Simulated scan of single mutants.
Amino acid sequence: MIRTTEQDSLYNNIDQMSFREILTGINQEDQTVPHAVAKCIPQIENLAVAVTERMKEGGRLFYIGAGTSGRLGVVDASECPPTFGVAFDEVVGIIAGGDTAIRRAVENAEDDTEQAWNDLLYYQIGPKDSVIGLAASGTTPYVIGGLKKAAENQILTGCIVCNSGSPVAAEAQYPVEVVVGPEFLTGSTRMKSGTAQKLVLNMLSTTVMIKLGKVKGNKMVDMQLTNSKLVDRGTQMVMAELQIPYEQAEALLIEHGSVRKAVEAGQI
């Protein structure tokens, strides 16, 4: 049986289409992705609850994947520190082939069943941690091997895949299976499958961070102030919370380094 992600595109002769026809076709397919993700909310919830419980005990979150899936994990992990103020080793994205593979494919890296566990051991991974395998196909040996070893070592495991009944899902305690159907360009899982994985990662990490107390109301009160735009955003938050002028709010923010600390100082 051909995996859903490998099934033939529903669109024929796309090389003969006009620019508008190609773009319209891609867009029509993309519109199906959020509906597929919505069906998986119970699975995503189960994974988010489990990861949050571990992280409240001091655990970390690891993503492992190859190719597009691995890159998406690296992106999500790298955005957590500036967005939520967590340490850079609290959410970690690992891609088969190492950081070189973020920009350039590393031959056969995803076929090594032992390397993911070796990569995880570099971080001294332990029972409080969680590992989520990212693999659109659900068959990536690198991810399968990593999840299997993690489970053997009492580490929580989850996955985000785009085929049902996959080997990766079989190794995960908390599988998320977002079946988005054939790609517009046959087998190009950087498209709908990648979009689905990105949406789920956004949902997962944001929900976990909210439940870890990194958000107040609807504001990123622990975000890092790495540029003038974010300093201005933080100043506006402090102004609104303390009902003080812009200049005073900005001074508090710069002195204390975060919206949360600035507000706490202003309430004293």
Rank of each mutant, 00 (worst) to 15 (best):
I95G: 01
P34T: 05
E6R: 08
Q197L: 05
V92D: 10
E250C: 05
D232H: 10
P81V: 13
R3S: 15
C162W: 09
G158R: 09
A109E: 00
G217Q: 14
A240E: 14
V178Q: 04
V49G: 04
N108A: 12
A48G: 04
Q243H: 14
I102Q: 03
V200H: 13
R54M: 07
L120G: 10
S18A: 07
Q124N: 15
A101G: 06
K229F: 11
G65Q: 02
A66Q: 00
L121M: 12
R190Q: 03
V86C: 15
V215Q: 04
K39G: 00
Q224W: 11
T235E: 00
G93I: 03
G234E: 01
L185V: 14
R60D: 06
R103W: 11
G58A: 03
A48C: 13
K39W: 05
G67R: 00
G181T: 02
T139E: 12
L225A: 05
S166M: 12
E247S: 14
R3H: 11
T83M: 10
S130I: 14
W117G: 11
T206C: 14
K148F: 15
V208E: 07
E255D: 14
G58F: 02
V180H: 05
A116Q: 07
M209W: 11
D76S: 14
I160G: 07
S193K: 01
D8E: 14
W117D: 01
A66Y: 03
L61P: 14
N153I: 00
L121Y: 01
V221T: 13
L61Q: 08
V33E: 04
V200Y: 14
Y246D: 02
C162S: 11
A87L: 15
E57A: 04
S78N: 10
N202A: 10
V179A: 07
D129S: 07
G73W: 06
V259D: 10
D232F: 03
S130F: 12
K39D: 07
V176N: 05
Q224E: 13
E79A: 10
A116H: 13
V49N: 11
A105F: 11
A196H: 08
S205P: 12
V176C: 08
A105V: 12
K261W: 04
M237V: 02
F84T: 14
T4I: 12
R190W: 00
A135E: 04
D111C: 10
T32C: 07
E107M: 04
A96E: 01
G187M: 09
N12Y: 06
A170H: 03
T68M: 00
A150C: 07
G187E: 04
L212T: 13
